[in-house]
Computed example of a mutant assay.
Amino acid sequence: MTVYWFMMAWVILFGILAQVTSKRVCVGEYLGEEVYEARAHLFMAVVTFAVIVFFAGMRTTVGDTTAYIKMFGDYPLFQNAHDIIFDSSAREPGFRLFSILIKTFISDNYNVWLSIIAVISGICVMYPIYKYSCNFGVSAFLFMASCQFSWMFNGMRQFLIAAIIFSCTDLILKNKTLLYIIIVCILSTIHKSAFILIPMYFIAQGEPWNKRTILFIGCIVLAMLFTSKFTNLLTDVVEQTDYASSVNEFKATDDGTNPIRILVESVPIILAFIYRDNIKDKLTPIIKLSINMSLIASGLYIISKIAHSGILLGRLPIYFSMYNLILLPWLLNNIFDKKEKDLIYFIMIICYFLFFYYQMVVTWGGLSYGSEILNIKYQWH
Protein backbone atom coordinates (compact mmCIF):
# COMPACT_ATOMS: atom_id res chain seq x y z
CA MET A 1 0.00 0.00 0.00
CA THR A 2 3.06 2.22 -0.29
CA VAL A 3 1.65 4.17 -3.24
CA TYR A 4 -1.58 4.96 -1.42
CA TRP A 5 0.16 6.00 1.81
CA PHE A 6 2.38 8.30 -0.25
CA MET A 7 -0.73 9.80 -1.86
CA MET A 8 -2.31 10.25 1.56
CA ALA A 9 0.82 11.98 2.93
CA TRP A 10 0.99 14.28 -0.12
CA VAL A 11 -2.68 15.25 0.15
CA ILE A 12 -2.35 15.97 3.87
CA LEU A 13 0.83 18.05 3.45
CA PHE A 14 -0.37 20.17 0.56
CA GLY A 15 -3.92 20.27 1.92
CA ILE A 16 -2.53 21.91 5.06
CA LEU A 17 -0.46 24.32 2.97
CA ALA A 18 -3.53 25.11 0.87
CA GLN A 19 -5.47 26.00 4.00
CA VAL A 20 -2.64 27.98 5.56
CA THR A 21 -2.27 30.09 2.40
CA SER A 22 -6.03 30.43 1.82
CA LYS A 23 -7.83 33.75 1.51
CA ARG A 24 -10.95 34.95 3.30
CA VAL A 25 -13.99 35.62 1.12
CA CYS A 26 -17.49 36.82 1.94
CA VAL A 27 -20.08 34.08 1.42
CA GLY A 28 -23.19 35.84 2.76
CA GLU A 29 -24.68 37.46 5.83
CA TYR A 30 -25.75 36.13 9.23
CA LEU A 31 -27.57 38.29 11.81
CA GLY A 32 -26.82 41.36 9.73
CA GLU A 33 -23.08 40.74 9.57
CA GLU A 34 -21.02 39.52 6.64
CA VAL A 35 -19.85 35.91 6.93
CA TYR A 36 -16.35 35.05 5.72
CA GLU A 37 -14.92 31.64 4.92
CA ALA A 38 -11.50 30.42 3.85
CA ARG A 39 -10.97 29.56 0.19
CA ALA A 40 -7.79 27.88 -1.08
CA HIS A 41 -5.74 29.31 -3.93
CA LEU A 42 -6.24 27.49 -7.22
CA PHE A 43 -2.56 26.59 -7.61
CA MET A 44 -2.45 24.88 -4.22
CA ALA A 45 -5.68 23.03 -4.99
CA VAL A 46 -4.20 21.71 -8.24
CA VAL A 47 -0.97 20.62 -6.55
CA THR A 48 -2.91 18.80 -3.82
CA PHE A 49 -4.87 16.72 -6.32
CA ALA A 50 -1.96 16.27 -8.75
CA VAL A 51 -0.60 13.18 -6.99
CA ILE A 52 -3.91 11.29 -7.30
CA VAL A 53 -4.24 12.22 -10.97
CA PHE A 54 -0.62 11.20 -11.65
CA PHE A 55 -0.82 7.71 -10.17
CA ALA A 56 -4.29 7.13 -11.66
CA GLY A 57 -2.94 7.96 -15.12
CA MET A 58 0.22 5.86 -14.76
CA ARG A 59 -1.46 2.66 -13.55
CA THR A 60 -1.45 -0.67 -15.37
CA THR A 61 -3.07 -3.11 -12.95
CA VAL A 62 -5.57 -1.85 -10.40
CA GLY A 63 -9.04 -3.35 -10.15
CA ASP A 64 -10.72 -3.33 -13.56
CA THR A 65 -7.87 -1.41 -15.23
CA THR A 66 -6.57 -4.46 -17.11
CA ALA A 67 -9.96 -4.97 -18.76
CA TYR A 68 -10.15 -1.29 -19.72
CA ILE A 69 -6.64 -1.39 -21.22
CA LYS A 70 -7.54 -4.44 -23.31
CA MET A 71 -10.72 -2.72 -24.48
CA PHE A 72 -8.74 0.38 -25.48
CA GLY A 73 -6.21 -1.77 -27.33
CA ASP A 74 -9.01 -3.48 -29.28
CA TYR A 75 -10.56 -0.22 -30.46
CA PRO A 76 -9.82 0.61 -34.12
CA LEU A 77 -8.83 4.04 -35.38
CA PHE A 78 -11.62 6.52 -36.09
CA GLN A 79 -11.69 5.97 -39.86
CA ASN A 80 -12.43 2.28 -39.29
CA ALA A 81 -14.70 2.64 -36.27
CA HIS A 82 -18.14 3.28 -37.81
CA ASP A 83 -19.53 -0.17 -36.99
CA ILE A 84 -18.24 -0.08 -33.40
CA ILE A 85 -19.43 3.45 -32.65
CA PHE A 86 -22.90 2.87 -34.08
CA ASP A 87 -23.35 -0.73 -32.90
CA SER A 88 -26.88 -0.64 -31.44
CA SER A 89 -26.31 -3.83 -29.46
CA ALA A 90 -23.34 -2.36 -27.58
CA ARG A 91 -23.74 0.00 -24.63
CA GLU A 92 -22.27 3.42 -23.92
CA PRO A 93 -21.36 4.66 -27.42
CA GLY A 94 -20.17 7.97 -25.98
CA PHE A 95 -17.32 6.33 -24.08
CA ARG A 96 -16.30 4.30 -27.14
CA LEU A 97 -16.29 7.41 -29.34
CA PHE A 98 -14.34 9.41 -26.74
CA SER A 99 -11.72 6.66 -26.43
CA ILE A 100 -11.40 6.14 -30.19
CA LEU A 101 -10.89 9.87 -30.77
CA ILE A 102 -8.08 9.88 -28.21
CA LYS A 103 -6.49 6.81 -29.77
CA THR A 104 -6.71 8.27 -33.29
CA PHE A 105 -5.80 11.91 -32.81
CA ILE A 106 -3.75 12.02 -29.58
CA SER A 107 -2.03 8.73 -28.76
CA ASP A 108 -2.58 4.97 -28.84
CA ASN A 109 -0.68 4.65 -25.56
CA TYR A 110 -3.11 3.53 -22.87
CA ASN A 111 -1.38 5.59 -20.17
CA VAL A 112 -2.09 8.75 -22.17
CA TRP A 113 -5.74 7.68 -22.39
CA LEU A 114 -5.93 6.88 -18.69
CA SER A 115 -4.17 10.15 -17.84
CA ILE A 116 -6.65 12.22 -19.86
CA ILE A 117 -9.56 10.58 -18.03
CA ALA A 118 -7.76 11.04 -14.69
CA VAL A 119 -7.11 14.74 -15.39
CA ILE A 120 -10.75 15.35 -16.31
CA SER A 121 -12.01 13.47 -13.25
CA GLY A 122 -9.51 15.07 -10.89
CA ILE A 123 -10.20 18.63 -12.03
CA CYS A 124 -13.96 18.08 -11.90
CA VAL A 125 -13.72 16.91 -8.29
CA MET A 126 -11.19 19.52 -7.25
CA TYR A 127 -12.95 22.58 -8.68
CA PRO A 128 -16.22 22.47 -6.66
CA ILE A 129 -14.21 21.79 -3.49
CA TYR A 130 -11.88 24.68 -4.30
CA LYS A 131 -14.86 26.94 -4.99
CA TYR A 132 -17.20 25.97 -2.15
CA SER A 133 -15.34 24.22 0.69
CA CYS A 134 -14.63 26.31 3.78
CA ASN A 135 -11.63 24.04 4.49
CA PHE A 136 -10.06 22.69 1.30
CA GLY A 137 -7.43 20.72 3.20
CA VAL A 138 -10.03 18.78 5.17
CA SER A 139 -12.10 18.17 2.03
CA ALA A 140 -9.07 16.79 0.18
CA PHE A 141 -8.22 14.59 3.18
CA LEU A 142 -11.80 13.26 3.24
CA PHE A 143 -11.61 12.45 -0.47
CA MET A 144 -8.60 10.24 0.27
CA ALA A 145 -9.56 8.87 3.68
CA SER A 146 -13.13 7.97 2.68
CA CYS A 147 -11.57 6.06 -0.26
CA GLN A 148 -13.60 7.97 -2.83
CA PHE A 149 -10.30 8.50 -4.65
CA SER A 150 -10.25 4.77 -5.47
CA TRP A 151 -12.94 5.31 -8.11
CA MET A 152 -10.28 6.96 -10.26
CA PHE A 153 -8.39 3.65 -10.19
CA ASN A 154 -11.27 1.16 -10.29
CA GLY A 155 -14.61 2.12 -11.83
CA MET A 156 -13.30 5.12 -13.75
CA ARG A 157 -16.08 5.22 -16.35
CA GLN A 158 -18.85 5.75 -13.80
CA PHE A 159 -16.68 8.07 -11.74
CA LEU A 160 -16.01 10.19 -14.84
CA ILE A 161 -19.75 10.92 -14.91
CA ALA A 162 -19.90 11.52 -11.15
CA ALA A 163 -17.00 13.97 -11.33
CA ILE A 164 -18.35 15.87 -14.33
CA ILE A 165 -21.81 16.23 -12.81
CA PHE A 166 -20.22 17.33 -9.51
CA SER A 167 -18.47 20.09 -11.44
CA CYS A 168 -21.90 21.16 -12.74
CA THR A 169 -23.04 22.15 -9.23
CA ASP A 170 -23.54 25.74 -10.40
CA LEU A 171 -26.23 24.56 -12.83
CA ILE A 172 -28.25 23.17 -9.93
CA LEU A 173 -27.74 26.24 -7.76
CA LYS A 174 -28.80 28.52 -10.64
CA ASN A 175 -31.78 26.29 -11.58
CA LYS A 176 -30.56 25.72 -15.13
CA THR A 177 -32.68 22.60 -15.42
CA LEU A 178 -32.72 22.15 -19.20
CA LEU A 179 -28.96 22.45 -19.58
CA TYR A 180 -28.47 20.07 -16.65
CA ILE A 181 -30.76 17.46 -18.22
CA ILE A 182 -29.02 17.80 -21.59
CA ILE A 183 -25.64 17.18 -19.93
CA VAL A 184 -27.02 14.15 -18.07
CA CYS A 185 -28.39 12.71 -21.32
CA ILE A 186 -24.98 13.13 -22.95
CA LEU A 187 -23.27 11.52 -19.95
CA SER A 188 -25.70 8.59 -20.14
CA THR A 189 -23.92 7.59 -23.38
CA ILE A 190 -20.89 6.93 -21.17
CA HIS A 191 -22.82 5.08 -18.44
CA LYS A 192 -26.58 4.55 -18.43
CA SER A 193 -26.83 4.83 -14.67
CA ALA A 194 -26.46 8.61 -15.16
CA PHE A 195 -30.23 8.80 -15.76
CA ILE A 196 -30.78 8.55 -11.99
CA LEU A 197 -29.43 12.09 -11.78
CA ILE A 198 -32.55 13.54 -13.39
CA PRO A 199 -35.16 12.59 -10.74
CA MET A 200 -32.65 13.19 -7.96
CA TYR A 201 -32.08 16.71 -9.30
CA PHE A 202 -35.64 17.62 -8.35
CA ILE A 203 -35.42 15.91 -4.96
CA ALA A 204 -32.25 17.85 -4.12
CA GLN A 205 -33.81 21.24 -4.90
CA GLY A 206 -35.04 23.53 -2.14
CA GLU A 207 -34.72 23.59 1.61
CA PRO A 208 -33.36 20.63 3.60
CA TRP A 209 -36.01 18.37 5.08
CA ASN A 210 -38.68 19.65 2.68
CA LYS A 211 -41.60 17.57 1.38
CA ARG A 212 -39.56 16.05 -1.45
CA THR A 213 -36.80 14.85 0.86
CA ILE A 214 -39.37 13.53 3.34
CA LEU A 215 -40.99 11.63 0.46
CA PHE A 216 -37.59 10.17 -0.40
CA ILE A 217 -37.16 9.03 3.21
CA GLY A 218 -40.63 7.47 2.95
CA CYS A 219 -39.48 5.50 -0.08
CA ILE A 220 -36.55 4.16 1.93
CA VAL A 221 -38.94 3.03 4.68
CA LEU A 222 -41.18 1.33 2.11
CA ALA A 223 -38.16 -0.44 0.65
CA MET A 224 -37.35 -1.73 4.16
CA LEU A 225 -40.91 -2.96 4.68
CA PHE A 226 -41.21 -4.65 1.29
CA THR A 227 -37.67 -5.90 0.83
CA SER A 228 -38.45 -9.03 -1.20
CA LYS A 229 -40.70 -7.27 -3.70
CA PHE A 230 -38.23 -4.42 -4.02
CA THR A 231 -35.37 -6.85 -4.65
CA ASN A 232 -37.36 -8.67 -7.35
CA LEU A 233 -38.11 -5.35 -9.04
CA LEU A 234 -34.44 -4.45 -8.85
CA THR A 235 -33.47 -7.76 -10.46
CA ASP A 236 -35.85 -7.16 -13.36
CA VAL A 237 -34.43 -3.68 -13.91
CA VAL A 238 -30.76 -4.64 -13.68
CA GLU A 239 -31.11 -7.28 -16.37
CA GLN A 240 -31.56 -4.44 -18.83
CA THR A 241 -28.42 -2.57 -17.79
CA ASP A 242 -24.68 -2.93 -18.32
CA TYR A 243 -24.38 -4.28 -14.76
CA ALA A 244 -26.23 -7.47 -15.70
CA SER A 245 -23.20 -9.71 -16.16
CA SER A 246 -21.52 -8.46 -12.99
CA VAL A 247 -24.68 -8.89 -10.92
CA ASN A 248 -25.35 -12.39 -12.24
CA GLU A 249 -21.77 -13.37 -11.49
CA PHE A 250 -21.62 -12.04 -7.93
CA LYS A 251 -25.23 -11.89 -6.71
CA ALA A 252 -24.85 -15.11 -4.72
CA THR A 253 -22.20 -13.44 -2.54
CA ASP A 254 -23.37 -9.81 -2.80
CA ASP A 255 -24.57 -8.81 0.65
CA GLY A 256 -24.99 -5.15 -0.17
CA THR A 257 -22.95 -2.16 0.96
CA ASN A 258 -20.78 -2.63 4.04
CA PRO A 259 -22.57 -1.19 7.12
CA ILE A 260 -19.36 0.56 8.17
CA ARG A 261 -19.27 2.47 4.88
CA ILE A 262 -22.93 3.37 5.30
CA LEU A 263 -22.17 4.75 8.76
CA VAL A 264 -19.14 6.74 7.56
CA GLU A 265 -21.00 8.25 4.62
CA SER A 266 -24.00 9.05 6.81
CA VAL A 267 -22.11 11.01 9.48
CA PRO A 268 -22.61 14.41 7.75
CA ILE A 269 -26.36 13.98 7.26
CA ILE A 270 -26.77 12.69 10.84
CA LEU A 271 -24.96 15.77 12.17
CA ALA A 272 -27.01 18.04 9.91
CA PHE A 273 -30.22 16.53 11.25
CA ILE A 274 -29.27 16.57 14.93
CA TYR A 275 -28.12 20.21 14.78
CA ARG A 276 -30.67 21.38 12.18
CA ASP A 277 -32.09 24.05 14.50
CA ASN A 278 -28.62 25.42 15.27
CA ILE A 279 -27.64 25.83 11.62
CA LYS A 280 -30.95 26.66 9.90
CA ASP A 281 -30.24 30.40 9.79
CA LYS A 282 -26.67 29.92 8.60
CA LEU A 283 -27.42 27.74 5.57
CA THR A 284 -26.11 28.93 2.22
CA PRO A 285 -27.42 27.57 -1.10
CA ILE A 286 -24.47 25.19 -1.53
CA ILE A 287 -24.91 23.79 1.98
CA LYS A 288 -28.65 23.30 1.47
CA LEU A 289 -27.89 21.38 -1.71
CA SER A 290 -25.13 19.39 0.01
CA ILE A 291 -27.47 18.33 2.82
CA ASN A 292 -30.05 17.08 0.33
CA MET A 293 -27.41 15.30 -1.76
CA SER A 294 -25.97 13.70 1.37
CA LEU A 295 -29.43 12.45 2.31
CA ILE A 296 -29.87 10.91 -1.14
CA ALA A 297 -26.47 9.20 -0.92
CA SER A 298 -27.21 7.74 2.51
CA GLY A 299 -30.66 6.63 1.38
CA LEU A 300 -29.25 4.80 -1.64
CA TYR A 301 -26.60 3.14 0.54
CA ILE A 302 -29.28 1.92 2.95
CA ILE A 303 -31.45 0.61 0.10
CA SER A 304 -28.45 -1.16 -1.43
CA LYS A 305 -27.92 -2.96 1.88
CA ILE A 306 -31.59 -3.87 2.20
CA ALA A 307 -31.73 -5.15 -1.38
CA HIS A 308 -28.37 -6.96 -1.08
CA SER A 309 -27.17 -5.03 -4.10
CA GLY A 310 -23.76 -3.54 -3.44
CA ILE A 311 -22.81 -4.10 -7.08
CA LEU A 312 -25.72 -2.17 -8.56
CA LEU A 313 -27.19 0.26 -6.04
CA GLY A 314 -24.02 0.39 -3.98
CA ARG A 315 -22.32 2.17 -6.90
CA LEU A 316 -24.97 4.84 -7.38
CA PRO A 317 -24.34 6.97 -4.24
CA ILE A 318 -21.02 8.21 -5.67
CA TYR A 319 -23.10 10.61 -7.79
CA PHE A 320 -24.20 12.33 -4.58
CA SER A 321 -21.78 11.48 -1.76
CA MET A 322 -19.04 13.84 -2.96
CA TYR A 323 -21.11 16.70 -1.56
CA ASN A 324 -20.11 15.35 1.87
CA LEU A 325 -16.64 16.70 1.08
CA ILE A 326 -18.14 20.21 1.22
CA LEU A 327 -20.76 19.55 3.88
CA LEU A 328 -18.74 17.96 6.69
CA PRO A 329 -16.08 20.69 7.06
CA TRP A 330 -18.84 23.33 7.03
CA LEU A 331 -20.80 21.50 9.74
CA LEU A 332 -17.74 21.17 11.96
CA ASN A 333 -17.01 24.89 11.54
CA ASN A 334 -20.56 26.00 12.28
CA ILE A 335 -21.82 23.56 14.92
CA PHE A 336 -19.00 23.54 17.48
CA ASP A 337 -17.27 26.36 19.32
CA LYS A 338 -13.51 26.82 19.15
CA LYS A 339 -12.68 24.65 22.18
CA GLU A 340 -14.85 21.77 20.98
CA LYS A 341 -13.74 22.14 17.37
CA ASP A 342 -10.12 21.12 17.94
CA LEU A 343 -11.19 17.94 19.74
CA ILE A 344 -13.81 17.10 17.10
CA TYR A 345 -11.29 17.56 14.28
CA PHE A 346 -8.83 15.30 16.10
CA ILE A 347 -11.48 12.59 16.58
CA MET A 348 -12.58 12.93 12.94
CA ILE A 349 -9.03 12.52 11.61
CA ILE A 350 -8.37 9.44 13.77
CA CYS A 351 -11.69 7.83 12.76
CA TYR A 352 -11.13 8.45 9.06
CA PHE A 353 -7.59 7.07 9.27
CA LEU A 354 -9.00 3.93 10.87
CA PHE A 355 -11.64 3.68 8.14
CA PHE A 356 -8.99 4.18 5.44
CA TYR A 357 -6.93 1.33 6.87
CA TYR A 358 -9.99 -0.89 7.30
CA GLN A 359 -11.27 -0.29 3.77
CA MET A 360 -7.92 -0.51 2.02
CA VAL A 361 -6.30 -3.35 3.98
CA VAL A 362 -9.05 -5.44 5.56
CA THR A 363 -11.79 -5.11 2.95
CA TRP A 364 -9.75 -4.69 -0.26
CA GLY A 365 -6.66 -6.61 0.78
CA GLY A 366 -4.32 -3.69 0.19
CA LEU A 367 -5.68 -2.73 -3.26
CA SER A 368 -2.71 -3.83 -5.34
CA TYR A 369 -1.11 -1.27 -7.65
CA GLY A 370 0.96 -1.86 -10.76
CA SER A 371 2.53 0.53 -13.25
CA GLU A 372 4.75 -0.58 -16.13
CA ILE A 373 5.86 2.95 -16.97
CA LEU A 374 6.86 3.67 -13.34
CA ASN A 375 8.20 0.14 -12.82
CA ILE A 376 6.01 -0.32 -9.76
CA LYS A 377 4.34 -3.58 -8.87
CA TYR A 378 2.72 -3.77 -5.48
CA GLN A 379 0.81 -6.93 -4.57
CA TRP A 380 -0.70 -7.36 -1.11
CA HIS A 381 0.33 -10.57 0.61
Rank of each mutant, 00 (worst) to 15 (best):
I296Q: 02
I291A: 05
I262D: 09
Y301V: 01
R276V: 11
L312G: 10
E265N: 14
K305F: 15
Y323W: 14
R261T: 15
I262K: 03
L295F: 09
N248V: 01
S294H: 09
V267D: 02
G310C: 07
P259W: 10
G310M: 03
I262S: 09
S266D: 10
G299D: 10
I269Y: 02
R315P: 00
P285K: 05
V267Y: 03
S309I: 08
S294T: 08
E265W: 07
I287S: 06
L313T: 05
Y275L: 07
Y319V: 05
N278K: 15
I296E: 03
I318F: 06
S245F: 09
F273A: 14
I260N: 04
Y319T: 06
D242R: 10
R276L: 08
L316M: 14
A252E: 15
F273Y: 14
T284H: 08
T253D: 13
A244I: 01
I270R: 04
G256V: 06
M322W: 08
D242H: 12
L289Q: 04
S294E: 04
R276P: 04
V267Q: 01
I274S: 08
I286E: 10
F320D: 02
V247F: 09
R315K: 09
I296Y: 02
I296S: 03
Y275K: 07
N292L: 08
M322R: 00
K282M: 14
S246Q: 12
E249Q: 14
Y301I: 02
I291K: 03
A244N: 11
D277F: 11
P259L: 12
